[in-house]
Amino acid sequence: MNEIFTASVFASAIRLATPYIFAGLGETFSQRSGVLNLGVDGIMLMGAFTGFYAVYITENLLIGVLVAMLTGLVMGLAVAFISVTLKAEQGISGIGVYLFGLGLSELLFQKLIGTPKSVDGFTAIYIPGLSDIQFLGIGEIFFKHNLLVYVAFALVPVSAYVLNRTPLGLMIRAVGQNPQAADAMGINVARVRYFTVTLGGVMSGLAGASLSIALLKVFQQNLTSGMGFIAVALVYFGGWRPFGILAGAMLFSFVNALQLQISGIGVDIPAEFAVMAPYVITIITLIFASKRTEKPTALTKPFERGE
């Protein structure tokens, strides 16, 4: 057993959780305001590509991150326009956004780069002192990660604070829970939703970059292979709360890391079942998540001013 549950498994689980946390937190904001953005995976792919390409050209990681976030911002604005202004059905239009991102990122990749290449990307930052802790491998598990991992985990309490303790968070929750009442209170429902969906886009772009220039340091066609959809599922699983998303992301990435470890040391489980496990677990968790009552009442419902 000790061969399976090693410190490096826990450490890689934490690393793997990064894109889910970024995308899941962003999606939490937009769902809390009542908008389901199913295009997360498409935005992640575009962020992953543009961020990677920027680093590939400029060799500047900061520019890569900013470019990825900017891509997410533009696509988030587009999603907001589609679902808030045009009031398009959110489940289906999200699939459109996904296909667009999937196609365009592959198109640009083939046209601009061609074959999979790697970039240097983010390197691990050893937190002085803490990274030397040998006890239970704590140093290796928690304190030897790249910058984006620390940022992602730091954003969890920040997001929880913003959602639960600030006027902005109250506004977002009001809009998602009862847009009519929020509107009557003088809150501009459309503007709040534009803000949250665009923020979600930025976070998805960042999630993509965390994959292409920090975690894997490569870009290839369909790099995310559906991680964005899992991030959306994690929002349901996490009960629309940032710490719930963190728990879900950790569970999911832990299963993922375990799966890599198991196939690595040659335990006799067919590789296909190991790869399948996280998806089956997601479905099972969705069954339990569906009993939750925290779901924003106005989720997926476009706002029509009282008539």
């Binding site: 498409g42 589609i82 239009s93 459109g96 956004v97 365009l104 592959e106």
Partner: peptide
């Protein structure tokens, strides 16, 4: 021109038709 263009166009068509 990579054929992936069609995937992107399909996405646009979905978005525009639904919108």
């Amino acid at each position: 021109v990579p054929a992936a263009l069609i995937t992107a166009i399909n996405g646009l068509i979905v978005v525009f038709v639904v919108s």
